[in-house]
């Protein structure tokens, strides 16, 4: 029977390898290949997917900062809607003189970019004088629509105070959530 060129070529290659390589050598090379393989991403699809993976946190937290509490992107303001009390003569956790803190609030959570942990924040209004109208911010992390008023940041929480007049909003740190 006539042998094909392919058969001849295969036979020559096999005999050559058998003459040059020991079985132990073959095993050691195969082992090295298995060990090294995971270090190299083999498929470009896998690399593309990894590049698109979302980072942890929210859009707000990825751009938040921890040093300026008069800016809307201060980390505790992730769900605030209103004028920052820190621009109105008060602070992030204190009312300006002449205004009264609301006993009620809504409580959300914000991620501190310094430690990537979630903290509960009480958004509490200061009430009494006319609206401050400085540093007006609108951030919506964890805020719910008005039909879920307990977590709605449009609600004026000045009930239980002597005046319903809204002045400004604070972001009081309640505790570490995780």
């Amino acid at each position: 029977m006539r042998r094909s060129e392919l058969d001849n070529w295969g036979e020559r290659l096999t005999r050559r390898l058998a003459g040059r390589l020991s079985r132990r050598s073959m095993l050691s090379r195969l082992g090295a290949l298995l060990v090294a393989a995971p270090a190299f991403p083999l498929l470009p699809v896998q690399r593309a997917r990894a590049a698109d993976a979302p980072a942890a946190g929210t859009d707000f937290s990825r751009n938040a900062q921890t040093h300026d509490d008069t800016a809307c992107n201060y980390w505790r303001y992730c769900g605030i809607d209103g004028n920052l009390c820190s621009c109105c003569g008060g602070g992030v956790h204190s009312c300006p003189p002449g205004s009264q803190p609301s006993p009620t609030s809504w409580i959300g959570s914000c991620i501190n970019p310094d430690d990537q942990r979630a903290y509960l924040i009480a958004y509490r209004d200061c009430c009494g004088p006319n609206e401050c109208n400085k540093c007006s911010c609108l951030n919506t992390d964890h805020a719910m629509p008005i039909y879920r008023p307990q977590a709605n940041n449009h609600v004026i929480w000045c009930f239980g105070t002597n005046s319903f007049e809204y002045h400004c909003s604070m972001a009081v740190l309640v505790g570490l959530a995780q």
Partner: peptide, 18 residues
């Protein structure tokens, strides 16, 4: 805190008449 404490208060005390 996230479901109840905003109105009822962090420590369970808020505006008692409301």
């Amino acid at each position: 805190l996230t479901s109840c404490g905003g109105c009822h208060g962090v420590e369970g005390v808020s505006a008692p008449q409301a």
